[in-house]
């Protein structure tokens, strides 16, 4: 019974661990932030200026660990695409297309879906690289 259940739902391990890890990271981050604030309060209580590194640590918490020199908002940075991704998605799509055409492992139909998704990603990335006003990034 439990073996059957595991065989059917083993893939759930991945999304569930992702959620658990995310929650744990958030908790660690919250605790780090609270401790930084406590330390800053210690400085304030003794009437001294806290070191700038402490304040920048707080700033990092609110604005993420990304490179702070990049002024663009996060959603713009994430959409940056490069030739690397075009090649990666293109080759993956071709691989899955071959798997679909040869009905590899008897799962040809499933491979068709994967090939379509990766093909669409490759095409969309290619378009984005080509129309990027700043020129393609390698």
């Amino acid at each position: 019974m439990s073996e059957d259940l595991f065989r059917q739902f083993w893939w759930l391990i991945f999304p569930l661990s992702w959620f658990i890890f995310g929650a744990w990271q958030s908790w660690l981050s919250y605790r780090a932030n609270r401790e930084t604030l406590d330390l800053i309060k210690t400085y304030a209580a003794s009437g001294r200026e806290p070191p700038p590194e402490l304040l920048s640590k707080l700033n990092k918490r609110w604005h993420g660990d990304d490179d702070d020199r990049d002024e663009r908002p996060r959603y713009r940075r994430r959409r940056e695409r490069s030739w690397y991704q075009v090649v990666l998605f293109g080759l993956l799509a071709s691989g899955f297309a071959v798997a679909a055409a040869t009905n590899m492992y008897g799962a040809g139909e499933a491979f068709v879906i994967v090939a379509f998704v990766l093909g669409a990603l490759a095409a969309a990335t290619l378009v984005q690289v080509l129309i990027d006003r700043n020129g393609p990034t390698v």
């Binding site: 605790r31 780090a32 401790e35 930084t36 330390l39 210690t42 400085y43 003794s46 402490l54």
Partner: peptide, 17 residues
């Protein structure tokens, strides 16, 4: 990583106090 950070914070707190 979190443990290393906590120990650094502890040292900073002792120095600040």
């Amino acid at each position: 990583k979190d443990r290393a950070r906590r120990e650094t914070m502890q040292a900073l707190r002792e120095l600040a106090e």
